[in-house]
Design a protein around this nucleic acid. Sequence first.
DNA 1: CCGGATCGTGTGGTCTGACCACACTGTGGT
DNA 2: ACCACAGTGTGGTCAGACCACACGATCCGG
Lengths: 241, 241
Amino acid sequence: MNDGPDWRPVKRVRAFEEVVAQIEEQIATGRLRAGDKLPGERALAAALGVSRPSVREAMRVLEAMGVLVANTGSGPEAGAILAGSAGPALTGVLGLHLGLANFAVDDVVETRLLIESWAVEAAARHASEADLDRLRAIVAAMDAPDVSTEQFNEQDTEFHTAIAELSGNALVATFMRALRDTVRRHQQRAVAELGPDTGALRADHRAILAAIEARDPRAAAEALATHLRRAYPQVTRGRGR
Amino acid sequence: MNDGPDWRPVKRVRAFEEVVAQIEEQIATGRLRAGDKLPGERALAAALGVSRPSVREAMRVLEAMGVLVANTGSGPEAGAILAGSAGPALTGVLGLHLGLANFAVDDVVETRLLIESWAVEAAARHASEADLDRLRAIVAAMDAPDVSTEQFNEQDTEFHTAIAELSGNALVATFMRALRDTVRRHQQRAVAELGPDTGALRADHRAILAAIEARDPRAAAEALATHLRRAYPQVTRGRGR
DNA sequence: CCGGATCGTGTGGTCTGACCACACTGTGGT
DNA sequence: ACCACAGTGTGGTCAGACCACACGATCCGG
């Protein structure tokens, strides 16, 4: 079972990696919190003993991960501010790796079905009356007679996102949105959008809402699955219910 | 319903963003594929009409998203090579936002339970004999008398990762690994690891394996849930089925 | 006294040009 | 035929400069 010396390659540490690591540590230990503002690039470079370009590369990494936003100018809004929803970052990562064929569109749709099924069950279980009103408003808006394709898609996103948020799990909500955006961007690029007429899709939404109102998790999941299968017929693989 | 002019803020486009966008496009349109090598930083800068630092910032972003790796020196291995598993990138994003309190550890564990339940069901459904052998080997290795805590954790990771891969969904496998790594790093940082003795955990593994061997998805999911609840007792919130 | 134009200052954004460490590659000598 | 060695191209790093921008204090006219 001995495979020999088994050297590990010496990992050369680049300057910006060290900068990222130190900021990560400040976050992990709670010395930096959401809303805090980082020192200016010049000050940070001086404090860490690296050049400004190295600090900037670290900023770009953290920005790509959705951890901070950088603003120009002066005043309270300027500078690098810790913020961040992970959503856009996740969407970007997923989209890129979809393009690189690291996983397939089917995988994404299937994963979305899996996660959203769970979310809608949770929503059916503990949605408040206010939550239900929110969903009702969205569904009603989609049934208006003059909705454009653009608006329809916008509201559809809002509907599904709302359900994910109702699950009470912020991570699930983030994943959901990222998955939906990924699929959306991809199908927008490839095929003409919204092949089936919106009537069936709107009926699906009403069915999902009805199941949630009835506090029936099982029926809600079923209605959700029906809806997604209609919207993305390419999902053929079997799945666990 | 008219909300007025509704200006959108002019989004200033930074040079590196344009570079990233162009590379993304090359990937999306298939002109760049996994394994391809990008032009050198200097050449790219000249071709795009920007400076080398801007190109470098774009590289850092793509690298952070797990899309490419950069190597020094010369030869076939040198330069920026499109590669990439999304795993490490996801783990980083999740860890950071966990630190920023954008979501809770409970959310992560709960999500892992949700995803892995599905994965183990799928695995029970269509695992080949070779797949089963792989799982058996891992379980056997964990039952050896001289495993250190370090090794145990390593093999535990391998076991769960193998299950996720058996699901046949590469995205799910990637998520799974990222979620597990995130929880692992976090609990390593906070609490003494491996509170409960490993006996029960190993028995859980055997039970999961047995359920997969028996082609019983429901039992497999049940065993998996029991296992995770034992390993992460803090999960108290209700979950789907 | 008040109000608005103006300038100062600090922020990130960009560029130039240079040097370093590294790893391959071809060339030379033995 | 072999091996040592310089050549060359890669990313990594740095210093210093300039720009656009936005805020905030200051100055000037009413």
